[in-house]
Write a protein that binds this DNA or RNA. Sequence first.
DNA 1: GCCGATTTGTCCGTATGTATC
DNA 2: CGATACATACGGACAAATCGG
Lengths: 243, 243
Amino acid sequence: MPNSKYTAIYESLRHRIETGEYRYEELLPSENMLVGEFGCARGTIRRALNELGLQGYVQSIHGKGVRVLYRPTAQAQFTVGNIESYEESALRNHRVPGTHVIRFERLTADEAVHSRTGFAVGTELVYIERVRMLNELPLIFDINFFRADIAAGLTQEIASHSIYRYLEQELGVAIGSTRRVITVERCTALDQQYIDLEDYNCMAVITSSTYTADGILFEYTQSRHRPDQFLFVSQAQRKKNRR
Amino acid sequence: MPNSKYTAIYESLRHRIETGEYRYEELLPSENMLVGEFGCARGTIRRALNELGLQGYVQSIHGKGVRVLYRPTAQAQFTVGNIESYEESALRNHRVPGTHVIRFERLTADEAVHSRTGFAVGTELVYIERVRMLNELPLIFDINFFRADIAAGLTQEIASHSIYRYLEQELGVAIGSTRRVITVERCTALDQQYIDLEDYNCMAVITSSTYTADGILFEYTQSRHRPDQFLFVSQAQRKKNRR
DNA sequence: GCCGATTTGTCCGTATGTATC
DNA sequence: CGATACATACGGACAAATCGG
């Protein structure tokens, strides 16, 4: 379970919001009330509230209180703002994940790979192409580059399940942060070959660069989605201090 | 200028990173060093560093230091994670913005509008359709719903420039947070009529719900982009505490 | 319009825990 | 093991915004 107090408070408040105990547009109990309830310092409450704000659950209003923004929705919850493996996303949306490995090989980064992925020239990499299925339907085409030294012992068999689970649970690799770029691109011959595209002529593409907790780039991935099965959520705050 | 110390420190460190004073994969000076330099408490430094992490500039490594993730890129900087008006984005990417208003009318939210936008039934709204141009090319089709009481005095003339500037600078509306959902949708007859689509048969769509600083929903917008002119960036952290 | 109570925002100093080297 | 660096938490102080009387 959460090993920090502020995370526990965050989870607790989030649960209350999701179950409707605190309702849409209502104000939460004041920070001082929460300090009393949870028996902690105000800074700890504020940290939990800040996290709720970043995830779009609440918004603080200076001098007034903290308002609930969250509304329950029928739509599958595809919360983003944190990092999830394909397997985790599929299961959370109650779909059955499946993977078919198309290519699996080792290569050394040359100038072309460097400028595309950011890996230094000469870096040893594992290159993988996979078709991802949801409830048996081929919907996503994935292209991965992993640093071979960090993803040591990676096999085609592992790639047909969850690489992230292998990295985190078997190798103990700690994952830090990801930068994602979302674009829409014309579909390629590979897309058409492996994905049931109907008459779409483009794909929704998530290009992500992932760093270990040590701040080292270890993965570059292109995830190409059939347009109608793609949804991405993002939460943002307006900067103040503009005049 | 920034009216808080941690924002000033954030700006200062960000500038150093962007200009290459702190380089990619380097470690920043330790928090205690920065405390000395900026003459503040450690918590203030940590708050600035936290912000840099959220924006993808750095990543903290427990027991070791804070590593720079940012790499200068030739690509136009399309940072997201904060809220920008169309005009602001265009100018930051050195393009000339232009707007053509197609429809401008008032309406009252009925059940259909409610389930689409989230505005309560009976809410008075302003409905706008606009074609957005970049360097004279029609590339984006925007559909807006604004709460009429908050966007008071909004005219077609204002809509042909920047509605946000009017709201913020003329009316003093404070904008809080936005929830954005990105999807790819088949193009509609309106898209085809107003946007030069070449042979694309879909559009990149950003659907956003924006709240005032008071936490009141006041805008619901669909921004439909021609696929090749669309790019969206998002930064995420891996949650810890999983076992 | 002013005042006072409440509430969030910023900042400080300190203490302790934990990971890295 | 010790020194260094980041992570969490506490408590206190004051500023700034909101709201009711």
